[in-house]
Design a protein around this nucleic acid. Structure first.
Lengths: 347, 347
DNA sequence: GTGAAAGCGCTAACAG
DNA sequence: CTGTTAGCGCTTTCAC
């Protein structure tokens, strides 16, 4: 026998510790909850138990604790927001805040909500088995998925109430902005200012939403001018990526008198590239961004935005999530929320 | 008897549905899991069960499901990051990413982690009973607390592994930046440029960290120049708040040739106020920010930052959290992580 | 001082 | 086609 008493297979339970120390499970439980004083366990026993807990590396099973500890009069409901690590958290935190508010409003004696955010790597939602089974959430909002995630979701039926934000998926309740309309309005704003060589700046890896924005932008420009706008492709979503891509475009002497950046990180980078090239915004190059950036007003100059109306979107999400959980809604619906336009100095 | 069959007291369980429809609990369970095909339940029965589920408003108990469903060979560990709604999510998302990475590295057959973010209203952590009992998490990182929260934590012993980020609390493992040193370095940078009338911009509601930054800044300036710097107080943390406060200060003709903004939202607002007043950065007014802003490089001009070294901080947190859970550490420790300085064009 | 037993709500295996 | 049984891991009486 090896000296080390390592239980190599199953996780350590209270019973295993009990057996190891030759006491009962309840004694162990008492010590773990620091109730040994009131139960007047012998100090020596307490110490032996403590030692075993440490040596065996006990970590409690929270599911079992919850089941046992919960007051059978109160109903505990677990809500989640699933988003990718790579996405900006601004909208997510608004969704969370609002979900929490509605949850609080419905909380009372006998009804109790927890709301949390869980994250997955963009494109790898399918690997998060823990998030996707019925034993974790009563309802979730899923957002910031990539095409791979969407494909996975389309082929699955999740075992709880789901509202999808920003994607159209068959068989799910979806709340959507209208990227087509956003792209179209962005084009109209630039063309309306007299831009002749509009450019669209996109990340290489397009979400469904950003792809549609760019597409609609191009279609509108082509329809009104007869030619496609130039497409500048950034390596990623960050300002650095945007700055590099646009710098290359401007450096190559390819024309640009208006820019539509499909995400605001890119717009921020574009600002730097434009200024570095000695051009003025909006005189030389007008810029339109997307409007989900909390700081758009503080860009220099302030950034004109055409974007989703977040307030309305969040309202829709939360309403639908609760309707689904209460089975007041059974059929999936798609809800489209029209864009809001904020004209500022950049265009 | 009222017509409506509302079970007004305890939450609806599978058994209640079973009784209501006069079938067994397993039949109900089968239908809920959509396994009635393979069990070949009578379609009529399925319909009756479905109807009862809807009518009684059944919502599953996830704790019970998890306990039952989990594979006894694998150990499931639940990690949380507790933060306030009001705080910026940038650092939180980095912490989450890193915790997730370390968790993934330790995941294997027989070991499995979930990481999630839960939020509380700043100052009201004590009300979040659900987050604070032993039946939810195996370990948590707590951050973005206000003094009320700190007082509450100091008076409590949380029943799981806890690492506190950015606060000094007795009896907790704390990982801290060094706000005093940050404030001092900021002052040195401004004075080193020859600033004679430095100003510090703070929010009205100070966190422990921001208060110390401001304090150290003032102390250093006083020590080197003999006079206290002016304090400009913004109503909140947003760029709008910062812009308003500084605009008022500049408008009142009170001098300012160097600015230290204790949060980056405020710095962003300050930029606008300074430019609106026709002053140049850094020629007329040099600006120093705090360095936890992901876009500091894209401010116009890029913002010089003196701030916590996030990478190192996150590393410390995660290491300590795992040490605590494994009981490799028992005594609480305070870990101080020295600041990083990034000189950019604004100072 | 300590142990035995019951049961939280759910589901899977096994009997009919 | 459907019901009975057992038990996930934990804590809390109650009994000795």
């Amino acid at each position: 026998m090896a000296a080390m008493a390592r239980s190599d297979k199953r996780p350590v339970t209270v019973h295993m510790i009990a057996k190891h120390v030759s006491v009962s499970a309840s004694a162990v439980s008492t010590v773990l909850a620091d109730r040994h004083e009131e139960r007047r366990l012998a100090p020596a026993t307490v110490e032996r138990i403590r030692k075993a807990v440490r040596d065996l590396g006990y970590v409690p099973n929270v599911a079992a604790r919850r089941l046992r500890a919960h007051d059978p009069e109160v109903h505990h409901i677990e809500l989640g927001i699933l988003t990718s690590f790579e996405a900006p958290l601004f909208l997510v935190s608004r969704v969370l805040r609002q979900v929490q508010r509605m949850a609080d409003a419905r909380t009372g004696p006998g009804r109790n909500f927890s709301v949390s955010i869980a994250m997955f790597h963009a494109g790898r939602l399918r690997e998060m088995a823990g998030l996707l089974n019925a034993s974790r959430f009563n309802g979730v909002v899923i957002t910031n998925t990539l095409p791979d995630d969407d494909a996975f979701l389309a082929a699955t039926t999740l075992p709880y109430a789901v509202v999808v934000l920003g994607r159209r998926l068959p068989n799910y309740c979806c709340v959507l902005d209208t990227p087509g309309e956003i792209g179209r309005r962005a084009a109209e704003i630039l063309l309306g200012r007299g831009c002749r060589r509009p450019v669209v700046l996109t990340p290489a890896l397009l979400t469904q939403s950003t792809a549609e924005r760019a597409e609609a932008f191009c279609t509108t420009v082509r329809a009104k001018t007869g030619t496609d706008p130039a497409r500048v492709v950034a390596a990623g979503f960050t300002p650095t990526n945007g700055a590099e891509a646009l710098r290359a475009h401007l450096g190559a002497g390819r024309g640009c008198d208006g820019l539509y950046a499909v995400t605001d990180g890119l717009a921020l980078g574009a600002y730097q590239a434009i200024k570095d090239a000695g051009r003025k915004i909006p005189k030389d190059i007008a810029v339109v961004g997307v409007g989900d950036h909390e700081h758009a007003d503080f860009f220099d100059p302030p950034l004109t935005c055409v974007g989703p109306s977040n307030e309305t979107i969040v309202e829709q999400i939360v309403t639908q999530l609760f309707d689904l959980m209460n089975r007041r809604r059974v059929k999936p619906v798609e809800t489209f929320v029209p864009p809001s336009v904020v004209m500022r100095a950049s265009a």
